[in-house]
Design a protein around this nucleic acid. Structure first.
Lengths: 334, 334
DNA sequence: TTGAAAGCGCTAACAC
DNA sequence: GTGTTAGCGCTTTCAA
């Protein structure tokens, strides 16, 4: 069997209490004994059993995080930012991937909650089908939603103002003279897809754009962008601009346009959303709505800590204003 | 306090032993009592305490995974594949990001081991500096290395034959007539960087290519690819082909070449490694060495299960042959 | 088939 | 400053 704190205590000639105090860094131990305990621990190769500790203390110094799909590069970026924020407080982040499936999401959420994470950060897969999971887990653990949220259930959230983000993109292409503006995004499953779509509709309305302007809704994937581009090309007239629901879609659109010799930005303008790393490496570099990952992460940890400190603190929903990054896919900056 | 199994037992009028048997799915309980226990659990909102369970059983039904850098899109792809493989056996995967830092990597490895994961999958950051962590954690937990491995320490590993992969790329561009072949890759910190570099050197040797052919070693990032391309352009003669250590680098190289109006593949051929999702969306679509993620994942889980079943099973090192995917960055296929 | 009871390893009262 | 001890919630002998 493995070395326990009892073995260490014996070896050091002290009680388990003292050994525990030393090993957990309590100040109330004489330096002499502390030294003996530390030596014993090293000599025996003692390893802290976090499971036993967690059972006893009811805390684990770990935070769980669930993202809908780790392959969407926007999420790793957020994860990284969260990790960095967590660094300072010495907590570990355990990440889970829901694989776009609310059943898996629920399973992971339970696994994390069952293992007593001190807090949970979640980007819900669906604005409706993830609700039950969120409700269940919120009863047991402090939870903060990031980026996406669940409908009709009050819970902390931090994200960007998606509607505003899309309006930045639409206004930008309109200012460049576009009148026929297509929208290519994901089906209205997640709150971000919904909000971005709503933002687009509002712009259509407000600016009196033609009501038959194309809205193509599929997934947040490049393959869909490609398919949507084919669709657009098949049904003239071509739009002057294609506003995409995220960068992946936009990259797919760009790829297909390139293949068909449709020139961007000369023939059509294209915009994305998120500003993932590849946005600036696309051809042409992609004009996009930037989500400030570091700010999101900072705010997210702030909310989580607040809720961990007081389960009854008022619910907060923080929307950060995104910004437009202009690159060559709409004619370039400077 | 939360509902415990004791509450459930009381409510159902049975002993905690029986309640436990029902809740863990043991067959040796009369249907009547089983029903009563399940009803009680539902009525009270009982939640399994995985921490207590883990302490008692010494198992957790979870697998930990540590990747060097979640932002490198190759790793999310592997994670996904591993997740899917794990699905069947009902185990949860907890993922950690080492942020390219061996100190963080060690911290995460300990956190996972301390929390009694049943097994650990790791892509070590460094072939030397990660060794201590690997040794430590291997003493406590079944561990399998994927993709990268640690030098001078025998432990299970599964990955592709990087040397062979690079030789596929070099042979391909040479078959297309390239004689001046540059190599742009990462510093020789990780085993993959080392093996790919070694593969390149071997090809130089074997084919009598000029010894002063450029080798530029930086990081596995697109920014480095970009910088390296600038470097290549600054020091003529330009190579006929640029073989890159991974796709990200290649995408950076392509981006810079595009900016400088260097035509690919007319003026110079470019190849990558990994076949990440964006490889085919690059401009031009990238010829690359494909790592078969699903196979890696399958083999990885197989090794892990073997080691979990028998800690003393012989060490296995499995190298899967990668394949070349030819796209337009070297002139295209068919 | 069921129940009583002994811990898993650790921490935190509480007493000295 | 140090030790004794009672659990944290669960699973699993062992006995009935």
């Amino acid at each position: 069997m493995a070395v326990t704190i009892r073995d260490v205590a014996e070896h050091a000639g002290v009680s388990v209490a003292t050994a525990s105090r030393v090993l957990t860094g309590s100040r109330n131990v004489s330096p002499v004994l502390a030294q003996r305990v530390n030596d014993a621990a090293r000599a025996l190769g003692y390893r802290h059993n976090a499971v036993a500790s967690a059972l006893r203390r009811g805390r684990t110094n770990t935070v769980g995080m669930i993202v809908p799909e780790i392959e969407n590069p926007f999420f790793p970026a957020i994860v990284e930012a969260v990790e960095r924020r967590l660094q300072g407080s010495g907590r570990d982040l355990f990440l889970c991937d829901a694989q776009q499936d609310v059943a898996i999401e629920r399973h992971r959420a339970r696994a994390l909650a069952n293992r007593q994470v001190d807090g949970l950060i979640i980007v819900p897969v669906s604005s409706t089908a993830s609700r039950a999971t969120l409700v269940e887990v919120t009863e047991r653990t402090p939870v903060v939603q990031v980026d996406r949220y669940v409908q009709e259930y009050p819970a902390d959230w931090v994200g960007v103002d998606d509607q505003h983000g899309i309006s930045l993109a639409v206004e930008h292409v309109m200012a460049l003279g576009a009148t026929r503006v297509a929208f290519v995004s994901a089906a209205l499953e997640s709150s971000s897809a919904q909000a971005r779509h709503a933002g687009f509709e509002r712009m259509i309305e407000r600016n009196g754009l033609p009501h038959d302007t194309p809205r193509l809704l599929g997934t947040f994937r490049a393959e869909w962008g490609r398919a949507a581009a084919i669709e657009l090309l098949a049904h003239p007239p071509m739009p002057d601009a294609v506003v995409c629901g995220n960068d992946e879609i936009a990259v797919g659109v760009l790829g297909e346009f390139r293949r068909k010799r449709v020139r961007v930005p000369e023939d059509v303008l294209v915009t994305g959303f998120d500003d993932i790393r590849f946005a600036q490496l696309a051809d042409p570099p992609l004009t996009t709505v930037r989500q400030p990952g570091d700010q999101l992460a900072a705010e997210c940890i702030r909310l989580l800590d607040a809720r961990m400190a007081d389960r009854d603190t008022p619910i907060q929903r923080v929307a950060i204003a995104p910004s437009l990054v202009i690159r060559e896919s709409t004619g370039g900056s400077s």
